[in-house]
Every structure is written in C-alpha cells, then in structure tokens.
C-alpha cells in the first residue's frame, strides 16, 4: 500500500436524537492511500456520510484520531479547520449545492476568493477548469439554466479549482440520470487517474464503485469490509 493520506484510528461519533444518544460510528479504523479512489458503501444509517463529513473536516469526532496528510484535524480550532478545508478539500454534493444567484464561472471562482489570487488569475483559472469539464460555453449561465449533469460538472470544477489534496463526494450521481451519472463518474475517474487526486466517494449505487480502486462497506456504524475494487 502506498503512503496513506487518511489515517483513522478508533473513530467514534454519536448524536443526540431527543434525549437518546445514537452511536453512528463505533470505532472505525481506516487508511486511504494517497492518489486512491475509495468508495464508501452501506445502507442508510450505516454512518458513511458521517464518516465522510468527519474526513472532510465539517464535523468533529467524539473519540479517536483522524489524520489527513499527517495533520490531526480533530485538534484544529474552528477557524483553522475552515482554512484547512479551503486549502485541502474539494466538495461534491448530491444536489450540487451551487449558489443559484451566481453564474457557473462565479460558482467555480467562489473557493478561490479564499486564496491570495488576484481577480484576473481567479477568473482565468475558473475558466480553464470549466473548459476542462466541458463547460467552456456555459460560463455565464446560472445553475437553473443548466441540466443536472452540467450542474454537477460545475460542482466538480468548483471542487478542483483550488487543487485540493482530497476530494470528497457525497452521492455525486444520486440525482442524475444514467448518462449524466456515467459522465460524472468518468470525470472523477480522470481526475483520479490523470490528475492523481485522492477521492473518497459515498454511494449507494453498486455500479458507481467500478471507478473506485477500493470499496469500504459500513453497516450500523462499523466497517465490515475493505476490499480492492475489481476495476
């Protein structure tokens, strides 16, 4: 196994549902290799999205160690964690989560506003990335003027525009038709194989796992199998 970028040791997470404590993750141990493409699978309530949120630094574990590129992100303050996310993580959501009042180009530029790049460089980079995902002719379109597949490609462009170490995708094909889903998965695969991006993807769709090189199964908050994909 190559150098792990994500190292998780005995990770636990609980939520309160009313007065009841629900243990969502029950001591997860996992390593994700740098440049790997990992698919997290499992039934609803298995804890896969919670695990993804913890890896992405938008939630904090109760117990356990969570190290990304050697940095224990669970010890970071809220502001440091926000800065870490802006530099290291690219997000892809099931429902794209684009800003409806901004154009495709402005949506892609959004994470770059947190960098030191000037306006000209930000624009040029956003355009390049949008052209790379095949939307060079849709720069000035608002999300409601784009199809679901196109919107997800804008979201992917937004996720990679800062050149992050890690891309996390939560059901990226869950809201797409078969053709669009296939396009998005192919794009993710290219990002992994050609650009060397580490991708962790939550999916329900067994057919989506063919692009991953590792499939992790979770059930009831526990990791039940961790196997190499047969892609």
């Amino acid at each position: 196994m190559t150098t792990p970028i994500v190292e998780i040791t005995d990770l636990r997470k609980s939520y309160f549902r009313g007065e009841q404590v629900v243990e969502v993750l029950k001591g997860i141990n996992l390593k994700v290799s740098e440049g790997g493409f990992t698919a997290l699978m499992g039934p609803s309530g298995s804890g896969k999205s919670t695990l993804l949120n913890l890896i992405a630094g938008i939630d904090k574990p109760d117990v356990g160690s969570l190290t990304i590129s050697g940095l224990d992100i669970s010890s970071l303050s809220e502001n440091d964690l926000a800065e870490w996310r802006s530099n290291n993580v690219g997000f892809i959501f099931q429902f794209y989560n684009l800003m409806p009042v901004l154009t495709a180009e402005q949506n892609v530029e959004l994470p770059l506003l947190l960098s030191d790049l000037d306006a000209k460089s930000r624009k040029s980079r956003s355009r390049t990335i949008l052209e790379m995902v095949g939307l060079g002719d849709r720069l000035d379109h608002y999300p409601n003027e784009l199809s679901g597949g196109q919107q997800q490609r804008v979201a992917i462009a937004r996720a990679i525009v800062t050149d992050p170490t890690l891309i996390v995708a939560d059901e990226p094909t869950g809201d797409l038709d078969r053709n669009s889903a296939s396009d998005v998965l192919n794009l993710l695969q290219r990002l992994n194989s050609e650009a060397g991006k580490t991708i962790i993807m939550v999916t329900h769709d067994i057919s989506a796992t063919h692009v991953a090189n590792e499939v992790v199964h979770l059930d009831k908050g526990e990791l039940i199998s961790n196997e190499a994909s047969n892609k």
Binding site: A56, I58, E78, N79, A82, E83, R85, S86, N87, F91, F93, N97, M99, P100, L110, P111, L114, R158
Partner: peptide
C-alpha cells in the same frame, strides 16, 4: 441555510 452550509464547507469562516 443550505447555501450557508455550503459556503462554510468550502472554507468561509463564521
């Protein structure tokens, strides 16, 4: 609310 969550996830601070 969803947009706010997205902005925060992208790294915008409180």
């Amino acid at each position: 609310t969803n947009e706010i969550g997205t902005l925060r996830a992208l790294g915008f601070k409180k």
